[in-house]
Design a protein around this nucleic acid. Structure first.
Lengths: 145, 145
DNA sequence: CTTTTTGCAAACAATTTGCAAAAAA
DNA sequence: TTTTTTGCAAATTGTTTGCAAAAAG
């Protein structure tokens, strides 16, 4: 939170309540919401906020390096306040995303395998599965349709 | 290609030239184009094809299990004709995606780390880097803006 | 007081759907 | 000939932009 204020001042950007809320929302959540998800949550506390301000702020935070973006599409992007090295568990049914860390996975020997395509910046593991909530509501949205 | 015809017949679906082209395009490419990418390529050979037919066919192929979809968003999805176990190299600058295989990566011991979130179906490695083409046109779209 | 930021509304882009004409079985 | 599929155009949804009013520094 302090890091945020510092980065804003450093970049010559103004510290507005809206920006404050967007940052706090992303930093404080462990799912990785998309823009509409952030907007919906913030609106409860701050009904005047607009969706386009949320978009603008999220991309601004990304440019400042204060958050990262999951997936390489500008459309339907999810925003991630966790800047540490981590991997993702993704529920294939509902789309839930959760972080996990594992030191051993941070240095996999893959350089040689992808050298022909380009140079490596980082490696992310994406574990696909079914989350606990979806296991319980077992097939409600698949079997019955 | 034969597998395709068989699956179509099996599902009681009609074999149209448009569907043939969509399948051949996905199966024959090693990048993983989105719907518009498929559409653009096919249109060169078959100018009458429409974008919505491409969308419909892609999702149909996915439902039949003949192709898979990268990313969990229905929006801006990329389609993948490679059904074998494989991982992805993704260029963070231009979005290029290439496959690679590595047996050792197919059995990483992560079950315990994500058990609290849900059960595992499969694990995908996503390597982020800069592709060769982007290394060469070094910063043209970043430095100069 | 000066410059940036906000919220609105309109613009854009990507994807989906209704329907009559055309094609496959 | 019967049923499915296509292509068009319109509808929907998600994201971005222009601009005057409001807020930050």
């Amino acid at each position: 939170v302090e890091r945020f204020k510092a980065a804003m001042k450093q970049a010559g950007l103004k510290l507005t309540p809206q920006r404050m809320e967007v940052f706090r929302e992303i930093a404080g959540r462990e799912d990785h919401p998309d823009a509409v998800g952030v907007f919906t949550s913030i609106r409860e506390r701050m009904p005047s906020v607009s969706l386009d301000t949320v978009y603008r702020t999220l991309w601004m935070l990304k440019d400042l390096g204060l958050i990262s973006v999951i997936g390489s599409n500008r459309e339907s992007a999810r925003f991630d306040g966790n800047l540490g090295k981590h991997h993702h568990f993704v529920c294939v049914r509902c789309g839930l995303v959760r972080d996990f860390e594992k030191e051993e996975l941070n240095a996999l020997p893959i350089e040689n395998d992808v050298r022909k395509y380009g140079s490596v910046l980082e490696t992310q593991i994406e574990v696909h599965g079914i989350c606990n909530a979806c296991r319980n509501t077992h097939g409600d949205s698949i079997t019955s349709e």
